[in-house]
Write a protein that binds this DNA or RNA. Sequence first.
RNA 1: GGGUUGGUAGCUCAGCGGUAGAGCAGCGGCCUUUUAAGCCGUUGGUCCAGGGUUCAAAUCCCUGCCAACCCA
Length: 505
Amino acid sequence: MEDTNSLIEQRRSHLAGLAEKGVNPFMNKFSPETGCDTARSLMAKWDAWNKSTDPAKGEPVGWPEGHRVRLAGRITAHRDMGKSHFLDLRDVSGRIQLWFQKAVFTEEQWAQFKLLDLADHVGVEGTLFVTRMGEPSLKVESFVPLSKALRPPPAKWEGLADTEIRYRQRYLDLIANEEVRKTFQARSLILREIRDFFHERGYVEVETPMMQAIPGGAAAQPFKTYHNALGCEFYMRIALELYLKRLLVGGVDKVFEIGRNFRNEGLSRRHNPEFTMLEAYEAYGDYATMMETVESLIRRLALKVAGTLRIEHRNAQGEVYKVIDLSHWRRARYKDLVREKAGEDWFRITPEERRRRAVEDLKLSGDIAAAYEDFEVTGAVFEKLVEPTLINPTFVTHLPKELVPLAKISADDPTTVEVFECCINGQEISPGYTEQNDPVAQRKALEEQAGGEKQKLDEDFLVALEHGMPPAGGIGIGIDRLCMMLLGQESIRDVILFPQLRPKE
RNA sequence: GGGUUGGUAGCUCAGCGGUAGAGCAGCGGCCUUUUAAGCCGUUGGUCCAGGGUUCAAAUCCCUGCCAACCCA
């Protein structure tokens, strides 16, 4: 990209100007003592103490006026008053205001100062003080250019709105938009908290293959790749499941993995071709054990990241348009939820009548294909009419066995399986299972699912099961959707740093 | 895959057949406590691309590309 404009040319000439003066505009190393906002708040603390008239205010706190400090960051604002300039310096901790006075510097140094541009990185050293306006600031005594920005930053006030630039050049989005920085810091916190949660419960974190000869554990289109040295095709994984279960066989009784799955399907507000999945398995647990696990985990995440179990989603105007109450976790049977929307007699009428009612009365004609079997008609009712209404957390239990062929039959209702779908925010956040550990039943179910295509059977996995897998509960949690729910984002692209877009040119 | 909306200066946007615009940023000037600094002046454009209609197209039409949203 060799595009130039006058702004880039100006910056290039400033770069050349620094070089002529023998200044390296890309320093190898400069060690700041502390963060910009750290210095700023310590100064503010002292200032508050200093100005307090309370006779019992005690010992000085923070950093006093005149405290010497060395900082580094990016220049994000410039207010020029001739012989006196105010700049904002920003690093990951936040910002602090810099004061450059002409009188402090030699003519040569001032000439170098004039070659600095907005968005450059600089290192500065000086003393802390508070301005007349009460702003804790740094009186700069020396500075060094650390990295010259050859391109202008986005406008500071409007921020960056162009979605395409925001996603393709996320770094500009992060520079320009404070909320975006916060969202991704919160995502990092969520991941860390999930790991702490499972480690505290005695789980072992593992990493299993992303390149698999047979992509299993879910029904989804995989991406294909090729290994030159082995001379064979591989698939990018679509789920973590089958390898984690091998580890249950191997005696890793509590095991989890957080990792990327890849599905070669459509992109949407809720789908990115690569997405982050958590799966956790617990030997001697069952689906009920895992419901408790999911609830405890998500409650903890909400308190950590939002400070409350009442998650508010706000629109661009800052108005709350949705509230998710994570203090009550409903448990409801699949059939009961379907009856609420489709009629009390739904499961007593004939399959033909069900189809007619779904298409005509419930207006699901676009969602029900002619080839759908009866259970799929009910599935469409659930997916289109029930799931979107489950804003507050609901564990949907006792799913019909046809819907989840690989699961274990419920002890109290043989037409259903020991599976839950935890729905929050109108979407499925986490499925959970009492895992199938009967190798004969598992083989039969997988063969039926493969529809006679023998090469799709993960024989190695079935052999593992034949060695004996302990009874276990398992869950999967879509981390991206979890982040959307907790962080008030309606698009998956706003919780993934670099969402997939069509490559340019 | 279908529909809707959008793509104009570095950024945010207006203009919607008749000379290419504003604010911010930038550049020059004034100002040594400003903070979306202020005041004066000023530079900057493949109006997404390609075709068409027209005396005349950023503007109307067609095709394509990219994106967002809705639907499948």
